[in-house]
């Protein structure tokens, strides 16, 4: 290689490095909103699920899959609905089913008057002290300043630690990208002043978005006057999905 050749090749390589760096920076920056009035520090998001109002229609499951482009196959859900059936005297052994996550609702299965039957919607609990964010080795999952647990798909290496760590089974590996995926509380909607898709379509108001930092949010009154429960309180995850009328048999 003579000097002329060396300089040509060297110059090309330098140019390519610079171009790649610029392109990378562009990708990293994303496309932020043009006018952004949303201030994360002023919110602390939670969700209220009123089990007594759920009719098991599955509207939330379908809307969630559409809104968030969740792969339309069984076993991949950001939210799903479980049906519990408990024989009168056997509260410790509930029969639980969730055919295709209740995507098509539920087929009739139990006789009226024998034991009790009810529906329990489930989704990511957006824990304040989340086990899933603690185990992530690369900082790909995290809690935002407004209390939503998110996944950075570009950073996720697909190691599945978080899927194992979540006590609520809310995470899965997206077979298309081989990265972790789960409910974002429709972060792209709530930061625009909309409610999550599942809340929007719920016909009975069984799901309600709540902002705990907003003093005029009706959630405060509701939490004060109802018997509220979170799932697996013994895990001390700081879950922010508040259930009203949750049966003790639900896990």
């Amino acid at each position: 290689m003579d000097r002329r050749e060396f300089i040509m090749v060297g110059g090309k390589m330098l140019f390519m490095t610079a171009a790649t760096a610029a392109a990378l920076e562009h990708v990293m920056a994303g496309t932020p909103e043009k006018v952004d009035t949303y201030k994360a520090a002023e919110h602390w998001w939670a969700l209220l699920i009123d089990v007594e109002k759920c009719i098991g229609c599955g509207s939330c499951v379908r809307a969630c899959k559409t809104e968030n482009d969740v792969i339309n196959e069984p076993f991949y859900f950001r939210t799903w609905v479980e049906r519990y059936h408990i024989e009168a005297t056997d509260a410790e052994h509930p029969i639980v089913d969730s055919p295709n996550g209740a995507y098509d609702g539920f087929p009739e299965a139990y006789e009226e008057g024998k034991g009790k039957t009810f529906f329990v919607p489930k989704m990511c609990n957006h824990c304040a002290d989340s086990p899933c964010t603690q185990v992530c080795p690369v900082g790909a999952t995290f809690i935002t300043p407004d209390g939503v647990v998110l996944i950075d798909k570009d950073y996720c290496v697909g190691c599945r630690y978080c899927v194992q760590a979540c006590p609520y089974g809310c995470r899965y590996i997206d077979p298309r990208t081989h990265t972790a995926d789960k409910c974002t509380l429709c972060y792209h909607r709530i930061t625009k002043g909309l409610v999550p898709a599942c809340v929007e379509v719920c016909p009975t108001g069984s799901r309600q978005l709540a902002d705990l930092k907003n003093p005029s949010d009706p959630i405060h009154e509701f939490l004060r006057t109802h018997a509220i429960q979170v799932l697996k309180p013994q895990m001390a995850t700081g879950s922010k999905i508040y259930y009203n009328g949750l049966d003790g048999a639900v896990r």
Binding site: A63, N68, Y187, H188, R189, L194, E200, V201
Partner: peptide, 13 residues
């Protein structure tokens, strides 16, 4: 930047 990328998603409803 990941937060902005997630926020940039288009809505369906």
């Amino acid at each position: 930047a990941a937060v902005d990328e997630i926020r940039a998603r288009a809505i369906s409803y």
